[in-house]
Structures are given as C-alpha cells and as structure tokens.
Amino acid sequence: MSLPLIVLRAVVLYLSIIVATRLLRFRHVGIMAKHNYLVAAGVVGAASTGILDPQTSLVRMLAVLSFFTMLGLSLSFLDLKLPQALRDKPIPLISYGRMEKKQLRKANMTIENLLGQLRLKGFFDLESVESALLETTGRVSATKKSEAQPVSRQQMKLPSKMAVPPIKLIYDGEVITDNLEKLALNRQWLEIELQKQGFSSPKEVFFAALLQNGSLYLCSH
C-alpha cells in the first residue's frame, strides 16, 4: 500500500477515534468500568489493522468503529438505567480490621496484591485499616480507623470555612467575560485590581483567578 494512503487512513481513523472517545465521555478515558476497557482495546485493534491492511476498506473500518462506539455507549447507558444488570457489588477485602479470606479468594487477589494496593494508598500500618473494598471500577478503596485519621479542622474546633473552587478570570491575556458576569463584576473592577498589583492591562497577565478569600491569584507571562 502506498505511503500517502497510509497517512491518509491514519489521520482519518485517528480523528474519528477522537470523536468516538468524546461520544463515550470522560468515563471512557478513565476506564471506569470493564466495558470501557474492552471497547478501547477493540477500537484500537480494529483501527490499527484498518490503517495498515490494504484489503480492508476505510468505510468498513469506520463502520466497525461506529459499532464499537454504539456498543460502549449502550453498555454505559445500561450502567445508568439498570445498575443491577451489569454491576457486581464491591467485594469486602478487609472488614472491621480483619482480612476476609473467602472474599480474597473469590476476587482472586493474592495477599501481595492487597498489601500493595494498601501501601499505594499510604496504609502501611495494617493495624489502622478499618476496611478495604475491591470496587467495581477495579480499584481498591480503604478506610482508616477513626482514631488513625488525621486531625480535622472540626476536631480542633477551628472556625468553619467555605470551599470555593477558583474562578478563572484571565487566560493568556484574554479576559473571560462570562465568569466576570457570573460574579456580577466588570472589566473596570478587574483593571483596577490589576493596577493595584502593577499590571497596566490584562494582556500582561498569563493567568488570573479569583480565590475563595476574595484575593486574586495572578501570574505574568
């Protein structure tokens, strides 16, 4: 097969898989369920053959890709609509501080698998582990005993505060007017604030965000 043809096929299929991935949403990228993995592997296997094998037509490859995408989407919809159909329950690996031998066997988890997952979560000291679950996403979750948890602000009787995500106001010199409007602020306000910090125009700022305490986070180019 000639080189330009391969390049053309590669570009077309690459772009179509990106579209497919957008349709399958972020959960597909994070491989949040088993079928996300299967669909990703299927798509790639099919696409690489499709790019390189002269006997398969591009149209046929695109059809296969659409089929995989539809399959993935329907399985995700089933997840959403009929959670019982596809999902098995999380498997308790440790409960009340005790390892569950039967469940570990059922999940085909070796003791090294379990200890490794716990270590990755920073649970080095087995004594402090209250429970561990093998989640349906394939990841292990674990909770520490209450007395082993880090001291919280509440326990220290510190005044409560709000968690507000930072709101982007400028990126690469461009003011994000939508966010300003949502905050009932205007450009003049922003420019005055910038002047206070020694910037004459938003153009000089790479990134600016409003933080929860009302101050501006600023970064020049």
Partner: peptide
C-alpha cells in the same frame, strides 16, 4: 457524563 451513582460512591 454517563456516571452512575455507584461509580461516584466508589
């Protein structure tokens, strides 16, 4: 986002 509640809980 096609995220069922059990996934959020996990």
């Amino acid at each position: 986002a096609l995220v069922p509640s059990w996934m959020l809980m996990a």
